[in-house]
């Protein structure tokens, strides 16, 4: 018994029935990029590119450490990138280049 079998029985997003802290009734208005990320999820679903269940599994596939450290929409966009790579829709180098371009564009803003 190493305890690792628990990792097989429970994927990191499978929380039902576990213990948990008292419920802290937190709420926040979404940041603009978070709302865009949500809209992107819906649009990807409309186009049958990534559906809700694929997104959920994509988040699960990030693993416990990332799920623990990333915020809700950070997990979503990371999962979308991975799923788009898996489906051959994007390749990592294109995303890396585009991210560098976005950052450079921002830096060039007066």
């Amino acid at each position: 018994m190493t305890g690792s079998e628990e990792l097989l029985k429970r994927l990191p997003t499978d929380l039902g029935g576990l213990s948990g802290d008292a419920i802290s009734r937190t709420e926040h208005d979404l940041e603009p990029w978070e709302k865009r990320c949500h809209a992107l999820a819906d649009v990807l679903d409309f186009h049958k590119i990534i559906n809700t269940e694929e997104k959920r599994r994509g988040v699960e596939a990030l693993g416990a450490e990332m799920i623990g450290k990333l915020s809700y929409y950070e997990r979503w966009i990371a999962a979308f990138a991975n799923i788009l790579f898996q489906k051959g829709i994007l390749v990592p180098v294109d995303l890396a280049r585009k991210m560098a371009e976005v950052e450079a564009r921002r830096a060039a803003q007066p």
Partner: peptide, 30 residues
């Protein structure tokens, strides 16, 4: 992650997999 969101969206729009206007319209729906 915001940079990643912008980059993924722009790549998908450039490749005509989603429309530029669709995100904006879906934000209005939300």
């Amino acid at each position: 992650y915001e940079i990643m969101e912008i980059a993924v969206r722009e790549l998908l729009i450039e490749r005509r997999l989603i429309g530029a206007d669709e995100i904006r319209r879906q934000i209005e729906v939300l």
